[in-house]
Simulated assay, not measured.
Amino acid sequence: MDEVAKLAGVSKATVSRVLNKSDLVQPETREKVIWAMEKLNYKPNMIARYLRKQETELIGIILPDMSNPFYSKVLKGIEEVAYKFGYDVVLMNTNYSEEREKNSFKTLLERRAEGVLFMCHRLDNEKMKWLEEFTLPSVIISRTIRNNHKIPFVNIDNVQGGYDATRYLISLGHRKIAMISGPFDDENSSLDRIAGYIKAISEANIPFNDHYLKEGDFTFVTAEKLVKELLTLPDPPTAIFAVSDETAIGAIRGALDLGYKVPEDLSIIGFDNLEIASYYNPTLTTIAQPMTEMGRRATQILINIIEKRLIKELQVILPHKLIVRESTAQYR
């Protein structure tokens, strides 16, 4: 503690106040002390701190499916930052059950977690209302909060991502472009990306064909079925925007079953940039989400809230990127 105080230019008492999250410390002084602790890799005795202040240094993570590779990438970033700042994490898997979501929040309260990182497949106004009333600090990952709700979140611009994916297919000369989306009640990953898709084809003066928009569920099996419906239409598409990489791979599998070659006969673009995207044959053109960085930024925001630090942004939109690989080609 002496070295931290010396480097920060403050007293040992001030360092102690920062560690104990005292409101008596000015925000600028708190930042100096935290900077010094990070510089010196200083970690206080967490057991003693818990006995003294009843702080658990525990962060809860609630997610719908721990087997999903998207969430695995996000978890990597969460654990990286949590470890750096001396926090433990506990994982709650809801298996897409809203009842289990609420029970998970109650469990984390009982276990005296200091904050929650929340990932869910659907976020409506009712859920946001009880999140705002929840007593623990919470940050939402991969969902954008609208309607003036003040809940912190980290996400990408899904409308722009859907637009960029579709616009790239248009740039290759395709005009018969279909989309396999996620569930229509998923406002972010589905409806926002659909909005981007519609915006891109509208700007290109391509008439919207409702037969080209299929509601999926992010799974290989459903995508394989839906692509066969698309490719057996009287006027089938020449390109498909898939709402996720798993959806895209399922669509490729279904197209191959019908004798189509990808990308010679059909271009397919995905969304996420999961690890499998660069190993599948053909390798997958996709919109890359910064999944690990989402986890990092959300955890940093949550710890800043818990430790009463200065916070510049509570609602963060991270950039995405188009990754061009082998599954798309010029229209012929």
Rank of each mutant, 00 (worst) to 15 (best):
E3R: 13
K12L: 13
V15G: 12
V15F: 12
S16N: 12
R17S: 07
N20L: 08
N20T: 10
L24I: 02
Q26V: 10
M37C: 05
K39A: 01
P44E: 06
M46G: 02
I47A: 04
A48N: 12
L51P: 03
L51N: 14
L58D: 09
I59N: 10
I59W: 11
S72F: 02
K73D: 04
V81D: 00
A82N: 13
G86H: 14
G86I: 13
Y87T: 11
N93R: 11
Y96E: 15
S97Y: 06
N103T: 06
S104T: 07
L108H: 06
A113Y: 01
E114C: 07
V116S: 09
M119G: 03
C120Q: 02
L123C: 10
D124W: 00
K127P: 05
L131C: 04
T135M: 07
I141A: 03
I141N: 01
S142V: 01
H149L: 01
I151C: 02
G161N: 09
R167G: 00
R167Q: 05
S171G: 02
S171M: 02
I177K: 04
I180E: 10
P183Q: 12
E187C: 03
D192G: 02
K199M: 00
S202D: 15
N209R: 14
H211L: 08
E215T: 07
E215M: 12
F218S: 10
E224G: 15
V227D: 10
K228C: 15
E229T: 13
L230I: 08
L231F: 15
L233S: 14
T238F: 09
F241W: 12
A242W: 14
V243R: 08
T247W: 09
A248F: 06
G254C: 04
L258W: 11
K261D: 09
V262L: 06
V262N: 09
P263S: 05
D265W: 12
I269G: 02
F271W: 06
D272P: 00
N273M: 02
L274Q: 10
L274M: 05
I276V: 14
A277F: 01
Y280N: 07
A288V: 07
M291C: 07
E293K: 07
A298T: 00
T299N: 04
I303Q: 04
I306T: 12
K308H: 10
L310Q: 08
L310P: 08
L310K: 15
I311P: 09
K312L: 07
L314K: 09
V316H: 00
K321R: 11
I323C: 08
E326A: 08
A329W: 07
Y331G: 00
